[in-house]
Structure formats: C-alpha cells, structure tokens
Nucleic acid binder design. Structure first.
Lengths: 196, 196
DNA sequence: TCCCGACGTTAACACCGTTAGCATTGTTAA
DNA sequence: TTAACAATGCTAACGGTGTTAACGTCGGGA
C-alpha cells in the first residue's frame, strides 16, 4: 500500500506550510495582520484547504500558543539544569523568562493575550501620571521611614505595580476566581513591603 | 443666541448615548462584541454619526481606557487617605487594586490589553503543566533548604510567576525597552527569594 | 470500465471599519 | 419673504474579515 501513508505525509506537509506562512506574517506584521485569506494566498491554496487542517483561526493561534509554552519550558529547563542551587535557579530562570519574552515577543504576546490596544493613546496621559503619583508617594514615604532610605523610589514603584498587575492578570487568564489569588497578592505585597 | 449652545449640548448628548450604548454592549458581551454598527443600531442613528463624534473605533476604546485609569486612581486615592501610615497604604492599595480589577473586569481588560485569546484551549494543557512543574520544583527545593520550610510551594510558585509576568507585561506595554526593566526584575526576584 | 471518495475549487453569507456623496433641514442674510 | 448656506444625518458603497455550502475533478479499487 503506502498510498494512504503518502497522502498522510502530504497532508502534514500542507499543515506545516500553513503554520510556516502564518508565522511569517505574524512575525513581519504582527498577529493583527494575520488572516485566513493571507495564509491561503501565501501557500497558494484556496481558503477551505486551511479549514481542512484547522477547525478555525483560533486553532491556528492555539497551536502557536502551545509551541510558545513548550519553547519557554525548554529554555527554563536548560537554565535550571545549568545551576546546582535552587535559589540560583530561580534567579537565572527569571532572567531566562525575561529574555524569552522579549526575544520571542510575538509568542509571548500571543501566549498571554497582550492585545496592546488603545494603550498607545493613554500612555503618558495625565490619568496615568496621576495613578503613578499616588503609588509613588506612598512608596517614597515607606522608603524614607524604613531601613533602606537609599532605595530608588521609581524602581520600587514599578516593582510594586508590576507585582499587582502580574497577579491580577495571571488570575484573570486562569479565570477561576479562587481565593488563592488573594493569598498570592497578600504574600507578594507583604514580601515587597519588607524590602522597602 | 443660545442656539449654538443648544446644538453643542445636543451633540454632547449623542456622544453620551454612543458611550452608553458601547459600554452596555461591552459589559454584556465583551469588548470583542463591540462594533460601530451595533452602536449605531443601539442608538438608532446611522453609522457616520458615530464618526462625527469619534475619529474611529479606537478613539471610543481610548475614552473608556481613560475613564478606567481615572476610576482606578480615584479608588486608590480614597484608600490611601483612609490610612495614615505608608506601609498600611501600600497593603490596602494592593487590595483596592485587586478589587477594582475584578469588579470592573471589562475596564481592566481594556486598560491593559488583555485580549484573552487562545489561552482558553491551552489552559490545563500538558505544556503549561510542564512549565509549572519546572518552576515549582526549584521553589520547593528553595523552601526546603530555607528558613521557612512550612511555606506553601504552590502559592509561592504563583507569586513567582505573577511577578515575572507582571514585570514583563508592564514593560511590554510601555514598549520602551529601557534597561530599567532588568533592574526591576532583579529587584523583585531577589526580594521574592528572600521570602522563601 | 465504472464507481466512489478524497481533494481543492468557486462562490457565497454575514459580518466588520471606514468614507464618499447626497438629501434634508434649520438658520441667516438680503 | 425668499435665497443662500452650513450643519446634520442618511444611503450606499469599498475593501476587508471568518466561515461554509455546493460543485468538479481526479486517482484508486472493484
């Protein structure tokens, strides 16, 4: 026989072409530029062919999301095995995490649904500056009255905000509003405050 | 005269109707369900009327983003003034931040571009579990070899991950890849590790 | 040789954001 | 009072999107 095997192989090949073309478009012009029609154009097949390989557009994106998590896990694992001590591992893995996010920006944005919407206009807006001022003021005071008066207020503000946003958005992605979120929040914030 | 004033008022009124209708749609069906056509339908005007009040769809979203940041700032300010001591303020503001994010989910998602994409499918996927396992392992070891052997590994893992993601995504939104990001990361992670 | 099933196509449906062009209407000036 | 004008809101279209139904064609098995 071997005929159905060959067909299977050819089918897989087209699947690969679809993902390849999709990735090329996303990398060059961002995820918002990705469309089924452009993929079809690029691989020189008609549109329904794509639906023979993927249920819908979301399934294509899900495939890249899976790839992204796999890549990140691999990199973290490499970093981890390169360090003997657990605390060293955590420091180094944080670095690797950061590097992955910015080297593979397209992947990371897809993985965590960073749409990057109207923020463009609001950045550096008075509203945002007001928000920053409120937080920064408390942090400045806490530093002044604490054991590390030389600490950088601006840096600490960003750390504080990042912790808050990280916890909230991870919890939102998980979508299960379990009470663990509150615990994580208190844990992280109390840890942060001790560092002031 | 007063005629042009009346016209101005009527114009403002339609602007209000647009925002009201848009908010109703977003609240009931999410931002992805919001379209110019549906707003026009809802307010019983034709489509171009909307473009007389907003340059484009993004401008409508930007208006809500501004509102969101203003609301959050107000709430944080209230919380802040209710507490005399800076460290108390930071604890309470974190709580307020959390509450705002989940009470005003639609606002928060818009403000930070949380698209919530293909994550649906990847949640609880083996890829994600693998990632969790790698991080959790190091954290468990660090806890075991540290001064707080009773700490909850799972909680600490979420805290660790949230810190990483928060820093990365705030930095990505700001889009200026300044070296401060690295500092924030190291600062937050070293603080976290001390808490293990 | 005939039939069947798989593959790939065209063409459509129902949406989307955006804009050009037109009609109507209320206001102002002659 | 009437003519000109500016503002208002409309229809209709353009070019795009994801998705699918219906059709043709062609290779493999009976």
């Amino acid at each position: 026989m071997g005929i159905i095997e060959r067909r299977q192989r050819q089918k897989e090949e087209v699947r690969g072409l679809i993902l390849e073309a999709a990735w090329k478009i996303a990398r060059e012009e961002g995820w918002q530029a990705l469309s089924i029609r452009r993929i079809a154009d690029s691989i020189e097949y008609s549109i329904p062919v794509i639906y023979a390989h993927f249920a819908n557009k979301e399934a294509i994106l899900a495939e890249f999301t899976r790839q992204g998590f796999t890549m990140l896990a691999e990199r973290l694992n490499e970093t981890k095995t390169a360090h003997p001590e657990a605390r060293q591992q955590l420091e180094a893995m944080a670095q690797t995490y950061w590097e992955f996010a910015f080297e593979q920006k397209e992947y990371y944005q897809l993985m965590f649904g960073l749409g990057i919407p109207a923020c463009e206009a609001v950045r550096n807006s008075p509203e945002l500056q007001h928000l920053s001022a409120i937080m920064t003021d408390s942090i400045g005071q806490a530093i002044a009255g604490g054991p590390y008066p030389g600490a950088d207020t601006f840096l600490k503000f960003h750390t504080y905000w990042s912790i808050l946003h990280g916890i909230v958005s991870i919890q939102m992605i998980k979508q299960d509003s379990d009470p663990l979120g509150q615990l994580i929040l208190r844990d992280a914030v109390s840890g942060f405050i001790k560092s002031l």
